[in-house]
Design a protein around this nucleic acid. Sequence first.
DNA 1: CTTTTTGCACTGACTGGTCAGTTCAAGAGG
DNA 2: CCTCTTGAACTGACCAGTCAGTGCAAAAAG
Lengths: 229, 229
Amino acid sequence: MSRHTAGGTIASMDSSNTRREATRRKLFEAAVTLIAEQGFSSTTVDEIAERAGVAKGTVYYNFASKNVLFEELLRHGVEMLAASLQNAADEVAERGGSRVDALDAMIHAGLYFISQYPALTQLYVAELWRTNRTWNSTLMMVRERAVSVVADVIRDAVAGGELSEEIDIPLTASALFGMVLVAALDWQSFQPDRSIDDVHAALSRLLQGRVSGHQHAGGAGAEAGTCPS
Amino acid sequence: MSRHTAGGTIASMDSSNTRREATRRKLFEAAVTLIAEQGFSSTTVDEIAERAGVAKGTVYYNFASKNVLFEELLRHGVEMLAASLQNAADEVAERGGSRVDALDAMIHAGLYFISQYPALTQLYVAELWRTNRTWNSTLMMVRERAVSVVADVIRDAVAGGELSEEIDIPLTASALFGMVLVAALDWQSFQPDRSIDDVHAALSRLLQGRVSGHQHAGGAGAEAGTCPS
DNA sequence: CTTTTTGCACTGACTGGTCAGTTCAAGAGG
DNA sequence: CCTCTTGAACTGACCAGTCAGTGCAAAAAG
């Protein structure tokens, strides 16, 4: 019989109240910053424990291994990001905005997320394209989860005629994702004083093709030389 | 004593066809793939030596330490990339193309470079935004070197009236860089069969604002450029 | 009410293994 | 003969994971 709470099953789910859950959260927080700074391999479990203010044994009481701690961290993080992006898109849809507006809102949400969790973002970028790593499948899933939110909106926009049918949906989603990712990391690293709206406006401008002053007036040659055929 | 290596950095510059230089190149090649796969910390010097087909002692005869080997690798790699981008831009300029054409050519050159040196690219992405690392200043320099090539062309384009004066040059350069980087890594990782021109066309389309089907009146004219099929 | 039991959550010294870097004598090569 | 390479043995630091033990609050027993 479990002496604590009535049902053991529920007790383990019950996230916010238990002492254990608080410890896990502290460990996540400690791990994410340390790993973002130093990388996974050069971050020691002792460091994580110290930063979290617990003993090393506690880490192993709460997570099966350093690897498992990291995987759960990745999963937890990407759920937050995906939810945040999805939410931004949904809000625009409810308000009756277009899909393109939704994409724009997602860029804003992405920028906001990165500004809130810069360490988590650094960490993803650093690990996402690495091969031969034990947690590769987790990383795959994580990437898919994030990019597909963007791809879905693009797909809807194409279906609704808002975007050209000729665009390459997965590639465009990736490119968009990368654009926001790298621009945001540079923003955070090198121009942290700029406002999010400022950065957002710059990216929007780039995307909407309003970068060029006199568009394609005479510049039809933009890719004339590059087309193979 | 091992000081001959430290002092011999310059000496090794002039001798480009010595036996030693060949060994160094083999070590670079071995190191870049291993580190891209596993990360710096979890790649051992023994592994690098084995992959390069030399003895461990040789590694330390040629490089002062594992760290120094890595730093020289980073420098060497970014010089190749910067030269490649610059070259693409210069060729367009010589042919009398516009700056926007030069940007487009740089995207192509970037894609090509990444397809040629995927491991090097992975490695940069993984390390570029990391803080608190011994070789941080090297990384800073490396990033600056690469992005500034792009930024310079954008600046010229703005000065020449080809691009709007309202664009944010450094941020746009970063965003562009990130777009190509992430799209290329996804291409290599998940759709390696696609041709470079196909990927290039998709990115050009995204950039030129011709993604949207009926948004900008100006974009309609050039729509013929659906090169891939 | 008090005493005892139970077991969760946590502790931190310890272990066994790994790895960067060293050393050096014996070649290889040009 | 001087530069470069080999290969193996060695050192010492560092680190993931273990385990015997502690503290505590709630439940059971008295």
